[in-house]
């Protein structure tokens, strides 16, 4: 019997990091670990490690994290190449 059953998996659409034009870069020295970037990431691409850890395989580069960071600890840098 065949019907449209799908299984949960990361990378449903592949490594969506390739969609990115700007790359969020965290400056740990400024980070206050408020986790605002984590809670607002539309991609679940920020992990709560010692500092916020951005998963560049999947981050689509929307920049919500940088926009919301209360201490400007995240900088959006144009991707090279």
């Amino acid at each position: 019997m065949k019907t449209t059953i799908s299984y949960p998996t990361k990378a449903g659409m592949g490594k969506t990091g390739s969609w990115r034009v700007f790359r969020p870069v965290l400056h740990e020295d400024k980070c206050i670990k408020c986790w605002i970037c984590w809670v607002f990431c539309p991609e679940s691409a920020i992990e709560r490690d010692e500092f916020p850890k951005i998963d560049y395989d999947f981050c689509k580069g929307c920049g919500v994290c940088a926009n919301e960071c209360p201490v400007n600890a995240i900088e959006m840098r144009r991707e090279e190449k």
Binding site: T3, T4, I5, S6, Y7, P8
Partner: peptide
């Protein structure tokens, strides 16, 4: 957990 009935492409 499964998802039933999400988008299916012409290949399937």
């Amino acid at each position: 957990p499964i998802t039933h009935g999400n988008i299916i492409g012409p290949e399937y």
